[in-house]
Amino acid sequence: MTDLIDILFTVGLWSSVLRIATPLIFGTLGALLCERAGVLNLGIEGIMTFGAMAGWLAVFMGADLWTGMLVAAGTGAAFGLVHAALTVTLGLSQHVTGLGITLLASSLSYYIFRLAVEVQGTPPTVEPFAPLVIPGLSGLPLIGPALFSQTAPTYLAIALAGVLAYVLFRTPLGLAVRMTGENPHAAEAQGLNPIRIRYGAVIVGSALMAMGGAFLTLAAFNSFFPTMVQGRGWVCIALVVFSTWRPGRALFGALLFAMFDAYQLRLQTVFGSAVPYQLFLMMPYILSIVALVVMSRRARVPQALMKPYRRGER
């Protein structure tokens, strides 16, 4: 029993929390932005996979790490554009279109990866982001390594949560986005263009998702392999509900989730073979479902979520 509590005081646990949380923060913020404008983007799982592949491939071909992140964001934006064209302009089912995007983006990333890279034995690697140690602060016990010696994209992800919260709730642009997600007809009556706003939100949101994927191959690991996203995209969709569509709470939810995940990984080593490791691996997914059940009642869903907007049609 003391073992289980001891884990909570190990440096390894806390420094891995932010690392595990980073892709989830990117993905959750991206999905949140799309949904605030009224578009569910189930392309997330595939977009993250494609971002992971594209970012890694760019760096493998000789680009520097930030260019890799940008390339990933660009591919995410491209898939976002496709999703927007199908769900906003044509008003197709957001569920099925999103799944189609996921199937397409993930299979396409495997295909391109196989074409570009000869894989024999161990997959090729790149030099990933090094931890950015903040002088002074990183020397603090426990919280130093946990908070102040992460890689640069992790700090970026945390900052983005603040930026998104500010934009959504403190700027006219954010008001326009939220209005489009609540009532696009009212937005149109105010002289806004709901179509354009939805396009923008889906494209930017998808770019964020892809950056979350790229974090996996450029910071958390250093190589790409199929199925590496492992349902993180779906977890992000659940986290958006958990966050009640608020960026600050999304950050909190991702960190909470990552804490459980990090703890679960260490429990595996404590229990060894006494408990099948699969039970621990299941926990994050079960936890997401539990979070959904607990929060769904309380959540105030954007009213026009999943409702296509057609001018002059009710």
């Binding site: 496709v82 199908l86 197709l92 089912s93 099925v96 279109t97 799944l99 189609g100 995007i101 199937l103 397409l104 299979s107 396409l108 495997y110 295909y111």
Partner: peptide
């Protein structure tokens, strides 16, 4: 897989 995914989107 790519072709099958594409045909889902084109079918929609």
């Amino acid at each position: 897989d790519v072709t099958v995914a594409l045909s889902l989107l084109t079918m929609l």
